[in-house]
Design a protein around this nucleic acid. Sequence first.
DNA 1: GCAGGCATTATTCAAGCGTATAATAACTTC
DNA 2: GAAGTTATTATACGCTTGAATAATGCCTGC
Lengths: 213, 213
Amino acid sequence: MNRRSYHRASETERREDLIAATLDCIAEFGIRGATVRQIATRAGVTGGLIRHYFAGKDQMLQAAYRQVMTGITDEAIRAATEGGDARTRLRRFIVANVTPPVTDPRTLSLWAAFISHIPLDPTFAAIHRENYLTFLEALEALLLALHAEQGRTVSREECRAHAIAVNGLIDGLWLEGTLAADLFADKGLAETALSSVEALLRLSPGELSASET
Amino acid sequence: MNRRSYHRASETERREDLIAATLDCIAEFGIRGATVRQIATRAGVTGGLIRHYFAGKDQMLQAAYRQVMTGITDEAIRAATEGGDARTRLRRFIVANVTPPVTDPRTLSLWAAFISHIPLDPTFAAIHRENYLTFLEALEALLLALHAEQGRTVSREECRAHAIAVNGLIDGLWLEGTLAADLFADKGLAETALSSVEALLRLSPGELSASET
DNA sequence: GCAGGCATTATTCAAGCGTATAATAACTTC
DNA sequence: GAAGTTATTATACGCTTGAATAATGCCTGC
């Protein structure tokens, strides 16, 4: 009875490994291929361990979804808080959402695999909503700052409406652009996104996109 | 040996029933719940019959995906070809994409369930691409017609770029608006979409949305 | 009105699923 | 360095899955 030798890891480390393995499996084989055994193999442990760290497979998937979404949102928000004037921060925010690592086949695969759970699982719906609202608020704040910087008075309601539209645009461009990256080869996604947002906000052409990097 | 009595249906009829049952199951239980047995039960037949009409479960799913996507695209294109001037047709096209039956929890569930197969199954990718391009071309034609009608000269390239942006916007608004319909209760999705497209095309406010129905 | 073709049912199969449980090896504590 | 704790392995269980096969009854053509 030779039992496998193993390493006792810390709780956070093990959880992170398991979630990473889950995401690997989903990206490679889809939700269907992300079985308890596959995930465990990828993480270098045996299947039973998963239930020692999560109440069940579903809970692990939820944790994985949470990580993917906060990853995307944080990436964009981080890009927008690195200083500079409001115009620059907004530009960075938009560009971050339509360039790697956000525009990445793997990220899209993960997002797509999870989104179909939203209509079925209330926990997934809550995670989605929370992230959506966080994203929207960050965008709204950026728009308010931009208008303030340029001496315009724009109501909060109008900023929110603009944020909804800009978010929709970013979502859609990200989705289609990542699904069929080759179709956007000539004119980059980022350029399309920037000039579109300019138009949405009724700024003059180049006001947002023309940049000193 | 009492064997169930049954009805011999025509090939097209049976295929349609099976696809409809597949969509019902996916909308209700997700891809996970759309098993051969569930689908067969819903269609009022036994599981074996599926393999008499489709090479396998995957092929049936592909047929179902094709039907959902052409359903969406056709709905929008039909709305845009019911006559009227270019401005009216474009408005109808946009509105059709952000109102029922396109904006519908069921439609979203189906779309979401299928989209995760795109990165994994080349057939799904091809179906997506075909529909995307069809949609884009319809949109591009509408934009060309609009500009011609209003006596502007706008290059085909610019129209295509606008079509890409407008498509992205519509996709994103449709997605978020259907996922969280309650957040959009105050200002309708259609109104948001119309004024956003106006801005994207740099039309003057109300030029597209103000309407005699 | 019957004979033959084939759509449909019934049944079986092997594989894989998520989960539960008990044994055990790796650390911690004193 | 021995005892105790528990993270981890190993194994088994019951169930579901998609697919294959054989039996059967409906419908068509004559």
